[in-house]
C-alpha cells in the first residue's frame, strides 16, 4: 500500500515537473525571450550533455566537500551530544554557549578560514562541517534528553546498567530526533560548501557558477543550479532512506508522513 502511494506520488510529481518545464519552454519560444536572459529547458538540457565532463568534475569536488563536511559533523556531533547529556558541566556551561554560537552565520567566518587554512578544499570542508554541526548536535541532545522518567524506572526495575540504559533506551529513543538533525544538516552542508566556493575556490560548482556569471553564460549557470538541485535531492533522500531502513517503527507509527 505504502509502496503504491509512493509510486503514484512519484508519477504526479514528475508529470507536474514536466508540465512546468513545458510551460517554460513555451513562454521562451512564444515571447522570443533572448537566451542571454533566460535559456529554455532544452538549451539547458543540451548544455548539460555537451559540457557534461566539466560539470561532473566540479560536481564531484563539491560533492566530496559536502559529504566530508557532513560526515565530520556527524562524527563529532554525536559524541559531543553524548558528552553534553551525561556531563553536568557540559550541559550547563558549554551547551548554552554552543546554542549562542549557532546564531553566528557560519558563512561570515569564511574569510577568516581562508586566512588560516588557505584556498584549498579544506576551507570548504570546514565550513560545510561547521554549518551542519550545530543542528546535528542540538537535535541529538534534545533526542537523548527525551527519555521519560517512567522509562527510566522501567530500566531500573529491569536492573539495566548505565551503559545498557544508554544503548537500549536512550539512544533508540533519540534516533528520530537525530535523523531530523541529519536532514537539516545535510541540506545546510550543501549551502555551506557552495557559498564557501563562492568566497574562495578554484574548483567546484560554486566556482563554476562564478566563472559562468563573469562570462555572462546564463545557460551554464542554470546547469550548475540543476546539478546542485540534484545533489541536494539525492543526499537528502539518501538520509531519508537510511532513516526508513533503520527506524521501520518510526515513520509507520506516524502515519507514513
Amino acid at each position: 500500500m505504502i509502496q503504491r502511494m509512493n509510486w503514484r506520488q512519484g508519477l504526479s510529481v514528475s508529470v507536474t515537473l514536466i508540465g512546468m518545464l513545458a510551460v517554460w519552454q513555451l513562454i521562451c519560444v512564444l515571447f522570443a525571450v533572448p537566451a542571454y536572459l533566460l535559456p529554455t529547458p532544452l538549451d539547458i538540457g543540451s548544455r548539460l550533455i555537451s559540457d557534461g565532463d566539466v560539470l561532473l568534475r566540479h560536481t564531484g569536488i563539491t560533492l566530496f566537500e559536502i559529504v566530508a563536511g557532513f560526515g565530520l559533523s556527524v562524527l563529532f556531533g554525536i559524541p559531543a551530544a553524548v558528552i553534553i547529556v551525561y556531563s553536568r558541566y557540559f550541559s550547563q556551561a558549554v551547551f548554552p554557549l554552543l546554542i549562542g554560537l549557532q546564531c553566528v552565520p557560519m558563512i561570515s567566518i569564511a574569510p577568516l578560514l581562508i586566512t588560516w587554512l588557505g584556498f584549498g578544499m579544506i576551507t570548504q570542508v570546514v565550513i560545510a562541517f561547521l554549518i551542519a554541526f550545530f543542528p546535528i548536535i542540538v537535535s541529538a541532545v534534545v533526542g537523548l534528553k527525551s527519555m521519560e522518567k517512567e522509562m527510566n524506572m522501567l530500566a531500573m526495575s529491569l536492573r539495566a546498567s548505565k551503559l545498557q540504559i544508554f544503548l537500549y533506551f536512550r539512544l533508540p529513543r533519540a534516533l528520530p530526533s537525530i535523523f531530523g538533525g541529519f536532514k537539516v544538516g545535510i541540506t545546510l552542508s550543501v549551502v555551506g560548501a557552495v557559498v564557501a566556493e563562492f568566497v574562495s575556490s578554484d574548483r567546484g560548482l560554486g566556482y563554476l557558477q562564478l566563472v559562468a556569471n563573469a562570462k555572462l553564460d546564463i545557460t551554464m549557470q542554470f546547469c550548475v543550479i540543476v546539478m546542485l538541485a540534484v545533489i541536494g535531492l539525492v543526499l537528502y533522500n539518501l538520509v531519508g532512506l537510511i532513516e526508513r531502513i533503520a527506524l521501520p517503527w518510526y515513520r509507520a507509527s506516524r502515519g507514513g508522513e
Binding site: 517512567e150 522509562m151 524506572m153 522501567l154 531500573m156 526495575s157 529491569l158 536492573r159 539495566a160 545498557q164 537500549y168 533506551f169 533508540p172 529513543r173 534516533l175 527506524l247 517503527w249 518510526y250 507509527s253
Partner: peptide
C-alpha cells in the same frame, strides 16, 4: 531493584523500536 521482582507500570512502557517479541525478551537480553 532485586532479581525476582517484576513491575508492571500504569503506562505500558513498551519500547516502540522493538517488536513485541523483542520487548518481551528485553529482560533476558539485559
Amino acid at each position: 531493584a532485586q532479581e525476582g521482582n517484576a513491575v508492571v507500570f500504569q503506562r505500558d512502557l513498551l519500547l516502540e523500536w522493538r517488536t513485541v517479541i523483542a520487548n518481551i525478551l528485553l529482560p533476558f537480553e539485559l
